[in-house]
Amino acid sequence: MTEHEERRVRKTLAWLDMAGRKAGTWAFLLNRLTGLGLLLYLLLHLGVLSLLAMGEMQWDAFIALARSPLFLVLDVVLIFGILYHGLNGIRVALVGMGIGVRWQKGIFWTLMGLGVLLLAITGWLVFTM
């Protein structure tokens, strides 16, 4: 590894240095991870849609797989990612424009509370519908 690459790796790992850090860095880290996860999902989603072009057989096989319990758990993980990224995004956008700076912690925890509620409801729907 060149020195430049080594520095790159170290800087990326700096994301994960949680020693002594508070909720703010967790929020930041989780935002990046869910962001990457959602990007990956989008690519997978497009890939899966291309199965449609390959004919009915492949598509039906995929739909059967998508109804399996493991897949439903992944659905809930996906919903978590969307909810977290979106709700924390509201805080970052507002506070980042100088709105509600003094109450940013309260805003964060309120949005997270809302997120847990929505996750519980949608999770329940995923498994019962």
Binding site: R21, K22, V95
Partner: peptide, 8 residues
């Protein structure tokens, strides 16, 4: 990125 660790 609005982590607010500095102010902590």
């Amino acid at each position: 990125h609005v982590a607010f660790e500095c102010s902590e």
